[in-house]
Design a protein around this nucleic acid. Sequence first.
DNA 1: ACCTGAACACCGTTCAAGT
DNA 2: ACCTGAACACCGTTCAAGT
Lengths: 214, 214
Amino acid sequence: MARPKKNILSPQIIAETALKLVDKGHDFTIPGIAAELGVNPSSLYHHVNGGRAEIIKLMRRALYEQIDLSGLTDPLLPWQVRLEYWVRSYRDASAQVPAALPLLVGAAVDDSVTLQMYEVLFTILDQAGVAQGRQLAVAAMLDAIVIGSAIDAASPDPLWSADEERPRLTARADPEAMTRRTREGLNLAIVAAVAQIESMVPDPGQAEADSQRP
Amino acid sequence: MARPKKNILSPQIIAETALKLVDKGHDFTIPGIAAELGVNPSSLYHHVNGGRAEIIKLMRRALYEQIDLSGLTDPLLPWQVRLEYWVRSYRDASAQVPAALPLLVGAAVDDSVTLQMYEVLFTILDQAGVAQGRQLAVAAMLDAIVIGSAIDAASPDPLWSADEERPRLTARADPEAMTRRTREGLNLAIVAAVAQIESMVPDPGQAEADSQRP
DNA sequence: ACCTGAACACCGTTCAAGT
DNA sequence: ACCTGAACACCGTTCAAGT
């Protein structure tokens, strides 16, 4: 039986299985994905032309497809609220598969889902009144916050090992503080980023009004 | 000739060769490192007990050993200046081998060089007057900025591909803007982080004075 | 002590089959 | 069109040699 009646595989199924696997701490591996699907490794190549690299892009697409971008361009909500929601959505989706992020960040963005995510961001920045010439820098800053925070969430729990030569570090490395580390780091970064962006806007009220004009 | 008079290998040499290789865009590979050193792959295992994983830690150690931390704890300089120097040093070192960063960030920090780097950071934050309970969050934020910015520097140049369905994104993706993207993103992030930290300090002048008392 | 070479289990990918 | 199984080049690691 070389071929079942109903197809077992599809790009979608492969991507979701791969994400599920790395989420459970397994390595990203073609044989691993195939085994999870009860299929021969070579079978995957009938569905993804680009091999391993394309599977990675499919995974990113599947990951960010979950983000609900509707309403984020609605100027009735303050842009600060929408920007924070954008960052948290992007970050929460990323943190679902922290072990996969080093994989996902390496590839160039060319899937429509991820592209649309950035398009929405630039819309928000436009409405905030941020000059277009500075928006790429802002996007880079937010990217740094999101990816850094999500990778941080993936770090092994005792991120630093105790050492009597470094008293300050040791004093801050207790487990309870570690639990809050990532969350608070993200909160601080978001507040800092919004404050910085606000300082780049000449007249906040006017920018918001501009974006509502036809 | 199974053994030359003078030793060819050492942990140092292996780490530096590995960093040089990934810096030139090659994959991180035991045979690759061995070939660059004109040696059999199995020879490396006589110098690093932990195999591939330990080589990665040796690389990080070699990378951050370059950072000059002297003077960073001197309270005569404003903490803002020293903090910015710390971030830029950490980031510049990281950005030397952007392709290696996904490798380096995955492993737990247990080498004295990297530990010392964080110890210095906490010293600066102490002198700035940041409450100890919030310093891990601040460190996480700075980590996010550094790693995110360095990884961003590694991204393929046309990070986004043009698309008529996303007019705003396409308009901002011209090459010249791309060149400035990473640098400005880091500058913004640093300004934002310092502003945020300043807002966490009850009385800046007093904190600075405190740190100079014996 | 240090390097070699053979060996093993494994991964990514291709390709000629089979249905 | 879709899955299999053999095949190839490659990687990480070990281990019995050789000096």
